[in-house]
Write a protein that binds this DNA or RNA. Structure first.
Lengths: 335, 335
DNA sequence: ATGAAAGCGCTAACAG
DNA sequence: CTGTTAGCGCTTTCAT
């Protein structure tokens, strides 16, 4: 059995209350008693049992984090932000991956609650009405991060996708491109952020008097971008597309792989732009011109807001909209 | 205040023990009582407090995981393995990142212990004698995963690097390469796995009657590989190097970036091989021929062994040595 | 400044 | 099958 506060008290010849007081610095203790307690702690190698402490204080110093997949590059960046800031406030992270399953998300939400986490940050890739309802009805602190969908009902940290899209389109147009293709997701829900991005894309196209060329696919991962490559090359021939703006970096990389494998050069033969700035974007050659979604910051801000509430610091209640910016690299060139 | 077992007992008009029994299915309960309890749980929305439960059962169902950096690609794969298997046994993961700081590793070790985790998996990139000593003297379950160093004193899941190196060298030699350069780390500790890899490399070179060409660098991340590119090109000219075997994929990718940026084609002008099979290895173009270190499996095996001990299942006590294999891709060609 | 005692929410004998 | 009771290790009144 591990050494407890009782053992320390006995050795130091004081009561357990006194031991507790020196551990927590909660009340004045005579120098002499403090010395003996400290010495006892030292010789016994005592370490307080946080579980027992939590039971009485109702503070677990735990934040639950449910992610889609910790193996996903952008997710791990978000978690990095959460973890690093949480640490500064002495909070630990309990991590669960839902692997895109809606039921699992809900299950973990409940499970983490039983573990007495003080708040939950959910990094999701889907929109789950059950989760929304559950979270609206429980008073646990909560923060929602979703790269693909807007869920205004839940507290979140959001990005100005409309503006970001505009910036990229302006950049491409500034480079002389007119026939710009936008590779996006299939229409599923009006919560999909692609609806506003598509709208911004179409507005930009119309501003230069061009017809939009939209390609929609269901698989927004790399292989999705790869598989659609053929179709895009066809469109390039048929419509004279000179630039492809991909709604996600993964799509862009997949597409560039297809083009590489088929002897088409980037950016000489065609320009490709991404959205997200995942890790590989700067590693891949040619490096990918893209919009930087600040993943680390998204995690950091999410937990910081949560912690402020938990700690009772004054909270800036407005919705935080993080800046997005254009990262100009090699994959797009003047036409 | 949250609803407790007492509230349920009162509403169901039974004792709290009965409630406990139905929750845990630990002892027979009359159908009638069970029905009432279940009903009460339902109407009150009762969820057991795992903290309280842990305090008495001494089972937290928590595994502490300390990693170097969750944002690192191979690390997140290991964690994925840990998390996924842990989940199957109803264990949750408490995650901490040490960011390569030895003191932080130790601090987290102690911290997690106070949180009553049942075991700790440490994914480290350094060798920390204090950690070794601490873990040898505490009876907490422990598992050590280190991509760069062997620490035989600690339970671990290891890879057969000697064999892996041999396999790669045989492959390269089979392709007709003779002047093969090995890009490795600076000599620091005899625990560095590079000592056995270098030995295997040298043996292979000597078997074909060639002098080894070793290049050592301190920075084994991507920019390290990039920066050494110039020197490697020089060696290529001077010694007629036709293939570069990099001790880590990161190095290989960095090097390929340098070569790309300087108009040198892979594999036409020079072959490049990696070690690790990190995510980008298959994404980058040309795709990287490499040795697959099974990161996911390493995490999965580590926690599985730990859980077996925790659960008391019979344990196969031998050291598990995971297979490594050659992944033949595009970056190496016949000379 | 210190100790005694109550109690956090739950499980596990123990008795019936 | 069920209720009573004693704790798990700790914090926190409440006295002194």
């Amino acid at each position: 059995m591990a050494v407890t506060i009782k053992d320390v008290a006995k050795l130091a010849e004081v009561s357990i209350s006194t031991v507790s007081r020196v551990i927590n610095n909660s009340k004045p203790v005579s120098p002499e008693a403090r010395r003996r307690v400290l010495h006892a702690i030292e010789t016994l190698g005592y370490e307080p049992n946080e579980i027992a402490r939590s039971l009485v204080t109702k503070k677990s110093n735990l934040i639950g984090v449910i992610v889609d997949d910790i193996g996903s590059a952008y997710v791990s960046q978000i978690v990095r932000g959460i973890e690093e800031i949480g640490r500064m406030y002495k909070y630990d992270i309990v991590l669960s991956s839902s692997y895109g399953d809606a039921e699992t998300e809900l299950k973990f939400l409940k499970l983490l609650k039983t573990k007495q986490v003080e708040g939950i940050i959910l990094v999701s890739e889907l929109v789950n009405q059950e989760v929304i309802d559950y979270m609206k009805n429980t008073k646990m602190e909560f923060m929602y991060i979703n790269r693909y969908y807007n869920v205004p009902e839940l507290p979140t940290v959001s990005l100005d996708h409309d503006n970001a899209t505009k910036i990229m389109m302006d950049y491409l147009i500034g480079l002389g491109h007119k026939k710009i293709l936008y590779l996006t997701q299939e229409e599923d829900s009006d919560k999909n952020i692609e609806v506003e991005k598509v709208r911004a894309y179409e507005a930009a196209m119309s501003s230069i008097g061009e017809e939009p060329t939209l390609v929609r696919i269901s698989n927004h991962r790399m292989d999705g971008g790869y598989k659609i490559g053929r179709e895009i090359v066809r469109l390039k021939e048929e419509k004279g597309i000179t630039a492809v703006f991909c709604s996600q970096d993964e799509l862009a990389i997949g597409l560039m792989n297809y083009l590489y494998d088929n002897g088409i050069n980037i950016p000489e033969d065609i320009s490709v732009a991404g959205y997200g700035d995942i890790n590989v974007a700067s590693i891949y050659r040619p490096t990918l011109t893209t919009i930087k979604e600040p993943y680390y910051d998204m995690g950091a801000i999410a937990i910081r807001k949560m912690l402020k509430k938990l700690i009772g610091e004054p909270i800036d209640d407005e919705i935080i909209v993080l800046p997005v910016r254009l990262i100009e690299r090699e994959s797009c060139k003047k036409t």
